[in-house]
Structures are given as C-alpha cells and as structure tokens.
C-alpha cells in the first residue's frame, strides 16, 4: 500500500508556490490508478515522490510501511517501486535488449541463473521474447518502451509508476504499451500508477486522480471522474470522446446517461434514447 499524507513539495528555483500541495492519497495493492493533469499540474513531481527520486518537503510518503524520507531505505523503496519514464531512448542502458533488461537485477546483486529466469519472465510479460538479441535502436518506439517496462519487471517490483510512457509514441506504440500495462496489472497483479494526459488511457484505469496546481481535485472511478465534464474542461483537460458526445447530447436536451466510457455502451445508449423518442 502506498500512502501519502499531507505531501508538500516545492522546487528550489520556483518561488511560485508549492508544486505539490497537501496531497493525501492511498493506493491499494493491485490497483490501476491513472493520474491525470495538465502540464505543470504536479503529476510528474508526484510520480518522482513515489520512489524517492524526490523527497517530501512536508508530510510523508509511505510505501508498505517504509518512509521515503529515510535515506537508508532508498534501495528498498526503489526495488519495490519501479519507474518508467517518458523517453525510452533515455532509459535503455545496454546495446542488446536482454542485457538491458538484466541491468536492474544485476544492480540488486542477484545470482546469474536467477537473472536469466527473470529476464525471460520479463520479456515474456511484455511480449518481446523474439527480440531478446536485438539492438534497441533498431526497435520501434512502442517496442523500446516495452523493453523499458521489462527492465523494471525484471526487478520484480510490487508497484510500477509510469510517467507519461506513451507521450512520445505513435498511436500503434501507444496501444501496445497500454495493452502491456493492463496485462501486467491484470495477470501479474502489479499495482500500476499511470501518469498521463491522455483521457482515453485514464479511462482504462480502475481509478482516476485528477491533479491541478499541485492539488488533487478529483479522485473517483473513471465513469464518475469524467462525468464532471464542466470541471475537467475548466482546468484545461479534455474528456474521452464518448463522454464528450454524451455530454453534448445531454446539453441539447436528449436524455442519455452521461457516465459512459465504452463506445459500445454509448452506441446502445443512443439507440435507446432514439427509441424512447
């Protein structure tokens, strides 16, 4: 369980106020949480707090009962909370896929046989076994990002924080990565914290947290979170296309349910509304 209590943070050079302002969140094991927010909302800073890349200025971050502020827990926390960043090119260390996936376990001092097992497992989990001997620069963006994820999986973390992992990818790569993330959450029961600004991705989570100016303004299921279209538009966020369509239909006086995220459910709802008329 990840718990933040009254978490406050500010970068030294910024005199503009707090980047994180009193964040209280509890993330349960096995959850898939999407953190949404506009640029500068503090969502990436929040992500970096979760594995002690940044330390709280006030309040606390607690991972399974271990506080990130305690220096001697640093490596425990980092092997528990894996982190995937935006640019796959800047997080791949070795020039052969499997060597890169092995990097984390190697740092943890795990025996070679066990590393081999973990590398095989991780590559299978992201469906990249076929490319184990490939050079990363010959892979597509989506494939590279999946290798980055495998590199984290091989460390067997309980939690994975993904900081806009699809921001630099094309639609195909984005889809591949999202499927991998969902698969890991569903099949391997890894807790996922996905930082994103794509509504469609957030809609696939169990829970959506919306941040704005360092504060959490929404924390709910995707259906309920996106139902508040006016609030989201107010803070410069969009809503998924389906939600937007329903919102507009309601605005023009058609009686449809507004908290729908699935395209098929949406189509059915429109049919129902038409039949009702």
């Amino acid at each position: 369980m990840i718990e933040t209590k009254n978490l406050k943070f500010r970068y030294d050079e910024e005199k503009l106020g707090l980047v994180l302002d009193d964040i209280n969140l509890t993330i349960k094991d096995g959850e898939f949480v999407a953190v949404l927010g506009h640029n500068g909302s503090g969502k990436s800073t929040f992500a970096k707090q979760l594995n002690a890349v940044l330390m709280p200025l006030g309040g606390s971050v607690c991972i399974d009962g271990i506080y990130t502020s305690d220096e001697k827990n640093l490596w425990d926390i980092r092997s528990k909370v894996g982190m995937v960043f935006q640019n796959p090119d800047n997080q791949i260390i070795a020039s052969v896929v499997e060597e890169d996936v092995a990097f984390g376990p190697e740092n943890l001092g795990i025996a070679p046989d066990e590393i081999r097992k973990r590398v095989d497992f991780a590559l299978k989990a992201v469906d990249m076994e076929k490319h184990r001997g490939a050079a990363p620069h010959n892979l597509s963006g989506g494939q590279k990002q999946r290798i980055s994820i495998a590199g984290i999986i091989a460390m067997m973390p309980k939690y994975i924080v993904l900081d806009e992992p699809t921001a630099m990818l094309d639609p195909k790569g984005r889809k591949e990565v999202m499927e991998t993330i969902k698969f890991l959450n569903r099949e391997h029961k890894i807790t996922v914290i996905l930082i994103t600004h794509y509504m469609e991705e957030a809609a696939k989570a169990d829970r959506v947290v919306v941040m704005e100016k360092g504060k959490v303004i929404v924390d709910d299921t995707p259906e309920m979170a996106f139902a508040n279209v006016a609030l989201l538009k107010d803070v410069g966020l969009d809503v998924p296309q389906v939600t937007d369509l329903m919102y507009r239909l309601r605005g023009s006086g058609i009686n449809v349910h507004h908290n729908l995220l699935d395209e098929k459910a949406c189509a059915d709802e429109i049919v129902r509304a038409l039949e009702e008329k």
């Binding site: 960043f85 499997e98 990097f103 190697e106 001092g109 070679p112």
Partner: peptide
C-alpha cells in the same frame, strides 16, 4: 539532457556503482 534522464533512470533501477553487482552473462 539525455545524460541527466539516463542517470535518473539508472538510479531508479538501483544502480549504485560496481560494488555488489552481478552479471547476467558472467
């Protein structure tokens, strides 16, 4: 910028120098 990102990514993967490191292919 890349170097900075890479250093953070390496730290997140528990890199702390050669001390106590093992190898996939010894």
């Amino acid at each position: 910028r890349r170097a900075d990102d890479l250093a953070t990514a390496m730290e997140c993967r528990c890199y702390r120098g050669g001390e106590g490191r093992t190898k996939l292919k010894a």
